[in-house]
Nucleic acid binder design. Structure first.
Length: 230
RNA sequence: CUGUUUUCGU
């Protein structure tokens, strides 16, 4: 199986999707039964290539044959659908997971929250945050970053900041991505003192700014014609 | 390093 999977990975990455698929078709149930690695590679690869239908076909095999670590394969399919803008299809799979007692995990929810936000359905994304919490799944820094980003994009600056405070309150440490997400949001809202404060703050807590941090500040300040500050 | 999630303006 390992050799097959490695081969499929290489072919997929080189863009030889159909060859990879043929290899997958050659895998025999008793000698080299496809496992979660096989399925994830194929599904992710076909989704990235924009061939969602093909990915869904492979996903059908997982539904029928089953495999270990099904959850990861489900997550991969959910992510692929979400990226393709098929959020409602992705949500259906979430329902299917609970039915087939394959518990959604933090990756599942994070993917969906991200896709919903990207599709402009921030309200649903926030609702899903409540669902995940009520299901006993603890949101992590990915969850919060993603939601802060969606809130910021839709101009809900105050809520974005509140969620930032909220994550700290819940003991989830912001990372460089959190700051990189929030700083441009503040800049776009004209809140330069707050943006610069946040920049100072991240450094004071030992979070190293990276190229995204600096460029978002420079771009933000330039847009406001504060070239000297930039 | 055989696998899934967050920040990136055509």
């Amino acid at each position: 199986v390992y050799v097959y999977n490695r081969l499929i990975s290489v072919l997929m990455e080189a863009g030889h999707h159909d060859e990879a698929y043929a290899i997958y078709r050659d895998m025999l149930p008793d000698t080299a039964r496809p496992d979660s690695h096989t399925y994830v590679r194929l599904i992710v690869g076909f989704c990235k290539a924009g061939r969602i239908k093909q990915a869904q076909e492979i996903f059908l095999d997982v539904r029928q044959q089953g495999c270990e670590s099904r959850g990861i394969v489900y997550n991969a399919m959910i992510h692929g659908l979400g990226e393709a803008g098929e959020v409602s299809e992705a949500m259906k799979i979430l329902g299917e997971m609970t039915e087939k007692d394959c518990s959604p995990d933090v990756w599942t929810y994070n993917s969906l929250i991200h896709s919903l936000g990207k599709a402009g359905q921030v309200k649903k994304a926030l609702r899903l945050l409540q669902v995940m919490i009520s299901e006993g799944c603890t949101p992590d820094v990915f969850t919060y970053n993603s939601l802060i980003c969606s809130l910021g994009r839709s101009g809900r600056v105050v809520e974005a900041c509140e969620l930032y405070e909220g994550m700290i309150g819940k003991g989830c440490l912001p990372d460089v991505v959190t700051y990189n997400t929030l700083i441009p949001v503040l800049c776009n809202a004209g809140e330069f003192p707050a943006a610069l404060n946040l920049f100072k703050f991240m450094r004071s807590v030992g979070c190293q700014p990276d190229v995204f941090t600096y460029s978002s500040l420079v771009v933000g300040l330039c847009k406001a014609r504060r070239i000297d500050d930039a």
